[in-house]
Every structure is written in structure tokens, then in C-alpha cells.
Nucleic acid binder design. Sequence first.
DNA 1: GAGCATTTGTCCGTATGTATT
DNA 2: CAATACATACGGACAAATGCT
Lengths: 246, 246
Amino acid sequence: MTSTRYLDIAEKLAVEIAGSAPGTRVSSEPELAARFGVGRAAARSALQELERRLLVRRVRGAGTFVNRRIDYVISHSRPPSWHATVEAAGATPRSQIKSVDRLPLPAGRAAHLDRPAGALMHRVVRTFYIDDLPASWIEEWIPVEVAPDLDLALHSVESIDLVLRQMGRVAPVRAWCRASVDLPPPEVLRGLGIEASVPVWLVDSVSRDARTGQVLMASSAWTRADAVRVVVELSDTVYPEEKTCG
Amino acid sequence: MTSTRYLDIAEKLAVEIAGSAPGTRVSSEPELAARFGVGRAAARSALQELERRLLVRRVRGAGTFVNRRIDYVISHSRPPSWHATVEAAGATPRSQIKSVDRLPLPAGRAAHLDRPAGALMHRVVRTFYIDDLPASWIEEWIPVEVAPDLDLALHSVESIDLVLRQMGRVAPVRAWCRASVDLPPPEVLRGLGIEASVPVWLVDSVSRDARTGQVLMASSAWTRADAVRVVVELSDTVYPEEKTCG
DNA sequence: GAGCATTTGTCCGTATGTATT
DNA sequence: CAATACATACGGACAAATGCT
């Protein structure tokens, strides 16, 4: 005997919720315990297994709900847009500026920003939401000379991209990026409303001006893997025949 | 009072094991329960928290051990090599061919392989190990005309890359790839020795001949996130000034 | 190979804390 | 405030895998 009844229950529930809309309520632990004739511990384990599979989201005091997971594709061929991506998935996007500071560039950032450590930078921290749930925490570093009054402008305009285009007269494009799954620092954990450890994406990016190639921004985005399925795509290489210019 | 003693214990242990070598034994559940004056449940929760953080690996009947996690960088600038990557991290790599078949190309694969569905292909399934632990499960599809006797050659030579270079007279390079974190099918879960759900990378790749651009191979690699930290790097864009030819 | 102690995995019942509704 | 639901924790029990004798 395998004596893993909680996995059997999880399997049954996984099939049942496969056809349910995101946000649908899942039976509570006591309900499942009664239905399957097990203790609350086994029912709880089954729901936790579904949570590990990113199929449900559990909220203390509220219940267990079918999870929504959004695809976010990173590639050179498509410009990054949180709002467009979330809306395309049928959910409601929202972003909020947590802080805007002027700080000297930390040494760890200098390599990506083409500027010496200590140079004066704007540091913007934002949180991105899906259906009012914090899903992504982003820290962005922008040289002050690119847009000297960025901090003031962000009081009226929310989009950094827009401000840079208008005030900085530049066209930011994602030039480089590195994605992985990591353990976030405590500040980020709090910002994302995470208590125990769940997988979180870390995407480091550098934006350049499309015309001059000047570095405009370096950012680190921490994104909950249970809310967003990040997909990184390396574009197809050009064949040698097409690469040679002459 | 926040009665989360297990998180306090986990934090203490995390600091303690931070300086330990991979493979070092961690105290057992009963030992921790006695040491911190808690029940076995709390001690167990603490170790499970460390497991979620990918800091330890737990084996039933054996114990809890400090985990080793290897960086695997995917980018256009570096050729993929499991053995080199694992050895660079100070661990022992190993690979094993699970099966070699001749099968018609499934419809889902046709798009990446530049061949019609139903075309005859080699299908090679391999498992990659780190220190004798299964870490990666790879399915590779190669058109038979690229290397007609691939299946026979693999009896004596382990490396597909080598066989293609010698028999197929081609130079395979990674042309395209897409990486994310997903739920593996049951066959893969068994192959990786996974019971409950843990995060697993899925990396789909296409290799082409460096000279002709011909598609040589399409593969899907499932890799345990607790064993390998996959890092996908999008190379920096070329500036417009450099891109224009002539 | 058989037997044994150790260790983790599963499960029970019960109780209390805490957040949500 | 009350009811609900999840989070934590206790003690106890047995199963299953491992490693050693």
C-alpha cells in the first residue's frame, strides 16, 4: 500500500478545478476531510500539494481559490508591457510607485549602467498587481542626467517609459536581460506579501536608447512564480549566409 | 505573539548551514525537537522550510543534507555543456541514455524541426546526474537523414554532439531556446525521482548546423530547480550604428 | 540475506492562534 | 461580535526507505 491518500485527493481535485475559472472557491479543509473520510491533516496536505503545483492560492481566514497564472514572455522581438500582458490574460493590472529617491549608484549596479559607482541616480521602486494582488516588485535605476526631473514628473505621470520619452527625448528598448529563480531579500518578501518561501523570478534588465545605444535604465524585477509564468526566449540565430554583409 | 517558532528555527539553521559544505548532514527532526524544546511537527516544518528555500535536500530513511545548487547559464555566447558546467561547480557529472527509438515526428514538434509531422526521427531520452542524483531529463529529436545510424553509434559513443559531428558532418549550435518553470508529465517526474511537486525548469531548444543553418535537433530538457539554477541571458542588442551594413 | 536502529513520510485527533468575512 | 478558514503546534502511531550489523 502506498498510504499517500493526500496525493490521491490532490489528483482528484486537480482534475475538478482544471475546468474552473480563476478565483473559484475550492472546498475547505474540513469539507474535504468529511468528503474523503480522512482527518484534517490529509485534507490540508492535499490542498498544500495543489498550492505547490501553483493550481490554487490559499488565504488565511478566507479560503482556497483557483489560481490564475499569467504568461509573461521576454524576448528581443516584443517590447515589455505589464499592463498589456495582464490585460491580454483577462485580468486587471495595476501599478503603484512605492518610493522615488536620488541615490549614489551602488558598486554592484555600476557594471550594467556604464557609469562609475557613486554617480547620482534616480531609484524608483514600484509594485505591480494582478487583480489587486501584489505580483511583482521592481527596482529601477536611472541616471539623473537622462531625465533630471524624473522624480517630480512621476507625481503626475505614472509611466517611467512615457516620462523618459517626453522629458529625456529618448526611446527606451530592452537591450539585455538575465532571468532566473532566486530567494528574494526580506524587503521584497514583504512587498510581495510572502510569508513562507515560494519560488520567485528575478529578472535583471538594461534598457538603452534605440537611436544612440546610450544606457537609460537598469532594473531588477522580483516576480511571484505562482502569479506569473515567465518565459524567456532566445531569438533564432541568423544564418551565416544572411549575417555577412557584403 | 506570532507563534511561528518553526520559522525562527529555520532562520537559525539557515545561518548555521550557510558555511557548511554540500552533503553535510543536518540534525534530524527528533534532535532539533529536543534542542529547541518543540514537538516533532515544528522541527519538521523548519526543515521543510529550508527545503523550500533549496538549502537542504531530504531523503527518507537517510536524513537531511546541505544542498548543492549549480548555475547553468544559457546564452548565445556560450555553447551548452552539462559535464563542463557541473565540473566547474566542483561536482561529478554523469549521463545515461535511457532509450533510443525511431518514431514518426509528433505534430507538436513539427514547428521547431522544419519537417512535416510523421517524418521519421530518432528520439533519444537521456538522464543527467549531479553526484549520482538525477537532475535533468532530456528528450531529443533528430531527423534520421541527419545521422542515419545514430542509434547504432550511441552504443559505443555517448555524446550525441560528437556523433553528429563525425557521422553527420555538421557542427550543431544552439539556435533558439525557450525556458520557463513548469509541471512535468508523470514520466519525467519518475525519471527525476520526484514524489511531491517541486519547481522544475523546462528548456526547449533547437540546434542548427553552424554552416548551413539546417535544423539538426529539437529537444526538451526538464531540470530540477533544486539542483540547478538556470540563468537565461539575452545578449545585448547591437546598436543601430553597428547594425547597418554599408 | 536477515535483522535492527535511524530517519523521514504519512496520518490521526485535538487545541489554539489569527486573519477574513 | 460571531462564524469561518487557514496556520501552527502538540502527542502519538505506523509505514517505508536507508544504512549498518
